[in-house]
């Protein structure tokens, strides 16, 4: 049974991947809801690409399991998946249309159908006048769009996009965003990895933050960001927050302080306690941005160097 009618398109269950002594993915367990945009976020070398490679069947887990579109073996549902890797290459001497058709045919399409779909995509991506050109004539951004078209040509119901926005100008970023959202409207599932937290925040329904191969945070964006940051403008110095119940950390620049608070903390009680110590001119309870959460969770521990398997 390989369809997208079940609740979850992908289920990682204690999935582990080792490269020699390096643990690239450490017992990852998560479920990716069908018909959603799901983000893999994390620093370089965190294990995002490894997880995606396992997901599309390029790599096998050392232990644990993965179920994709209800199939225990991803090979059975390959034709339903579209994969765009992080580093994008093209057959330079191939014509643009032939390149897209080629990948359509590799996924079981008939040549005529693949050609029709390729033309439609080229039109949608405003590259129709380039269809007869060789891929080597394309700019980096255009090349990336062609790669994305090759990922989409066979109408996958699960799209796995590794850094889909890297190298794209703002106009093309919007084109890709709208494509992703359209696919989700068609009940497809899109899994993407990105370094741009704002993109993830505005596009993803849920994310998993992976660091050093482990899932540090996972869940719907709203839940992850749920009000745990308070901005306070006041007359005093940073010492006024010392010992306040529910305050986890404080950063102060000038008269503006940002407090990280326990999600269970009662904000009325907190405001009253601060007012007893200093003159408060402004008090705002905000949700933390994904960027702030990323920095907080990963901190300085992110290994920015590329590792053996671009894990």
């Amino acid at each position: 049974m390989t369809n997208n009618n079940s609740t979850h398109s992908v289920t990682f269950e204690q999935t582990r991947k080792k490269f020699g002594s390096l643990v690239a993915l450490d017992r990852l367990s998560l479920q990716i809801p069908s018909g959603s945009v799901y983000g893999f976020i994390g620093p370089n070398g965190a294990g995002k690409t490894t997880a995606m490679r396992i997901l599309v069947g390029i790599s096998k887990p050392t232990s644990g399991t993965i179920k994709v579109l209800d199939a225990d073996d991803v090979k059975d549902v390959r034709h339903l998946i579209g994969y765009l890797p992080e580093e994008k290459g093209l057959y330079k001497r191939m014509r643009v249309i032939d390149y897209i058709v080629y990948f359509g045919r590799l996924n079981g399409m008939r040549k005529r159908d693949a050609a029709a779909k390729a033309k439609a995509l080229l039109s949608e991506f405003q590259l129709l006048e380039w269809e007869k050109e060789k891929c080597q004539a394309l700019s980096k951004g255009m090349g990336q769009k062609v790669q994305l078209m090759a990922t989409l040509v066979h109408d996958p119901i699960l799209m796995v996009l590794d850094e889909p926005f890297s190298g794209l100008d703002p106009v093309n970023v919007e084109v890709v965003r709208s494509i992703i959202l359209d696919k989700v409207k068609e009940n497809s599932t899109v899994i993407l990895s990105t370094h741009i937290m704002e993109q993830a925040e505005s596009l993803c329904d849920a994310v998993v933050l992976i660091n050093k191969g482990k899932a540090v945070l996972e869940g719907p964006i709203d839940e992850i960001r749920k009000g745990d940051v308070v901005s306070v403008d006041h007359e005093g110095d940073v010492a006024v927050f010392d010992g306040l119940q529910g305050v986890l950390s404080v950063k102060q620049i000038g008269r503006a302080a940002t407090l990280e608070v326990d999600p269970e903390c009662d904000l009325q009680t907190l405001l009253k306690a601060i007012c007893e110590r200093t003159t408060v001119t402004q008090f705002n309870a905000n949700s933390a941005s994904l960027h702030e959460i990323f920095i907080r969770e990963v901190g300085g521990s992110g290994d920015t160097s590329e590792t053996i398997a671009n894990a």
Partner: peptide, 10 residues
């Protein structure tokens, strides 16, 4: 060129 990664997904 990383083309092989795309091919290996198919």
């Amino acid at each position: 060129t990383k083309l092989v990664e795309v091919l290996l997904s198919d």
